[in-house]
Design a protein around this nucleic acid. Structure first.
Length: 559
DNA sequence: GCCGTTTTCGGCCCGACTGTTTTCAGTCG
């Protein structure tokens, strides 16, 4: 059955292509709006009564959706795509290349082939076309380099899903004794260059038996050898399967998990870690091997920076330590589910409190809340809190940090929130000085409780603005502002590399899903994973506090 | 193309930024 997200992408694609084809922009916009409505609608259109479908999408668009649902495809989109060269469609994927620019290239300059565009940019002649300058050309070349650099790499959630699928396929095979994740994914790296799985075999297994079990894996023979199968998964992401006799699995697991810097470190009994790991007798497990070589057990995620490991008596934070959620969206702004649905889901997951932090008024693109709509939300929260007690919904907001560093409501409004997440959403291209100054001002605002996704990065897509993180951490510590670890696998921002530094400075970190729908809560696992990688312990994490303690903490820092 | 009507056609989100201009168009969030 088609999901709203799939239908939405078709509507939006049609809008874009209609504009590209030179049709009335407002007509195209009607499709775009239908797509945007769908993105914010939790109830599947496929399950809606016809009347509700019309009310949601409008008469014409509802009819289209109904037709596509019955057909399982959108002929209108396919027909449009058939009239546009593939290279032109590809140009639309380039940031900064919208329908107007691409339309000019295609119709006026007769450039249809993507490689021709690349060649022109590399030769420097793209900048000579009217409407295109050096800046556009350089941005395009930079984009190409980034795409090449990131080819085959994985977001953490996609890597996890692929590895799970591979292991599920391998384990039922009679000669596979066990199969585990190794490499960067085992170490919870925020971007995984290659998903790697190690299978321990109890008997000789022909390679085709292993490979046939994983139809999504396509082997690259030139990069493979005995016991090492490298290729791509699902035609895109880099993937590797390693095999070894079951008896050697523990040592291979440690060696393949790495990283090389850890394996090269000095072992407790002399020599390198790698040598010590190899030395252990057969039958000794992974835990015992690492413990013997390093002195204590070191979790895989800590092996990039063992210095961040908790001292004796400490331990890394776990998902079960998290008592409440502090950054989520509802359909008051750009979320898909209602406030009640989000809160009920949060409660069902076992959390004790739920902070709603919808977008603030300036975020018009995200349907940010005007003062008047805020009041309505607060009324609903009061009502729900009566019904759901002792579960508690907190009145939060994700306030845009405006270009000058101020928050997005007057103080008399800010004072009425239980807490404020302050985040940057617009004006992302700043110098380090300007960005730092802007964020420092927001942190110093007495109403700011949490600094949301600190750098604004989108992994594999967009670098964050440069920041003097030391100053940010130091100021956050001084003003008792928590820094968020945004658990969305596209963000994972604050970067785990600053977690140790922040906690050393006394900053409480908070791990938040930034969920825009019910399934978004599941991202908490990735936030916890990278928090652990940075060595975060439960006591240094704000939302491990029980509700009364959290409320007391908030009360203690009220302006 | 859809919506909401002062019911039959005018208005549709909008501000910031950037690069290319020479006063603004295109893109983005």
């Amino acid at each position: 059955m088609l999901t709203n997200a799939e239908l939405a992408s078709w509507f939006e694609k049609i809008a874009e292509l209609k504009e590209l084809a030179g049709e009335n922009a407002f007509a195209a916009n009607a499709y775009r709006r239908a797509g945007q409505v769908l993105e914010r609608t939790a109830q599947p259109v496929a399950e809606m009564e016809p009347a509700l479908r019309e009310q949601t999408l409008g008469k014409g668009m509802a009819a289209k959706a109904t037709y596509w649902l019955a057909l399982g495809s959108a002929p209108e989109l396919e027909e449009l795509e058939a009239t546009i060269p593939e290279g032109v469609l590809r140009m639309l994927e380039v940031p900064g290349f919208g329908v107007k620019k691409v339309g000019t290239l295609w119709r006026e300059h007769k450039i249809e082939d993507f490689e021709e565009l690349v060649a022109r940019a590399e030769a420097g002649t793209l900048a000579q076309l009217p409407g295109f300058g050096k800046g556009t050309q350089e941005a395009f070349l930079k984009h190409l380099a980034t795409v090449r650099e990131q080819e085959g790499k994985w977001w953490l959630h996609k890597a996890t899903a692929a590895a799970d699928e591979a292991i599920d396929a391998l384990l039922p095979l009679p000669s596979v004794a066990d199969a585990v994740v190794v490499g960067q994914l085992a170490r919870s790296c925020e971007v995984v260059e290659e998903v790697a799985v190690l299978a321990g075999l109890s008997a000789d297994t022909p390679s085709h038996t292993l490979l046939e079990a994983m139809p999504l894996f396509s082997l690259d023979r030139s990069r493979s050898g005995p016991g090492i199968y490298k290729g791509t998964w699902g035609g895109r992401g880099h993937f590797a399967l390693y095999t070894c006799p079951a008896a050697q699995m523990a040592q291979e697991q440690v060696l393949l998990t790495g990283p090389a810097t850890f394996l090269a470190r000095a072992a407790k009994g002399g020599g390198t870690i790698a040598a010590a790991i190899r030395k252990g007798e057969a039958g000794i497990g992974e835990f015992e091997r690492v413990t013997a070589a390093w002195g204590t057990y070191l979790e895989p995620e800590l092996r990039d920076t063992p210095e961040a490991a908790p001292a004796d008596g400490g331990r890394l934070v776990e998902l079960a330590d998290i008592k409440g959620i502090l950054h989520c969206h509802s359909n008051y702004s750009d979320g898909q589910n209602s406030l009640q649905e989000m809160a009920a889901h949060c409660q069902a997951l076992g959390y004790a409190y739920f902070g709603i932090a919808d977008h603030s008024q300036t975020a018009s693109y995200a349907n940010g809340l005007s003062e008047e709509r805020l009041l309505r939300q607060w009324e609903e929260i009061d009502r729900l809190n009566e019904q759901m007690a002792p579960f508690k919904i907190l009145k939060g907001i994700e306030s845009d940090i405006l270009p000058d560093g101020s928050l997005d409501y007057p103080d008399r409004i800010l004072a009425q929130f239980d807490y404020v997440v302050a985040s940057v959403h617009a004006g992302l291209r700043m110098s380090a000085d300007k960005a730092t100054e802007r964020l420092l001002r927001a942190i110093q605002n007495p109403y700011t409780t949490i600094l949301g996704h600190a750098t604004g990065r989108l992994l594999l897509k967009r670098e964050g603005y440069p920041l003097d993180m030391e100053a940010i951490i130091e100021t956050a510590a001084r003003h008792k502002v928590s820094i968020e670890i945004n658990a969305n696998p596209h963000r994972l921002d604050l970067d785990w590399r600053f977690v140790y530094q922040a906690t050393q400075a006394g900053v409480l970190l908070s791990i938040n899903p930034d969920a825009h729908k019910l399934a978004g809560f599941d991202d908490m696992r990735y936030g916890v994973a990278v928090a652990r990688k940075g060595g975060l312990q439960p006591a240094a994490c704000l939302n491990t506090l029980h509700l009364p303690d959290f409320m007391a903490w908030l009360a203690g820092r009220r302006p």
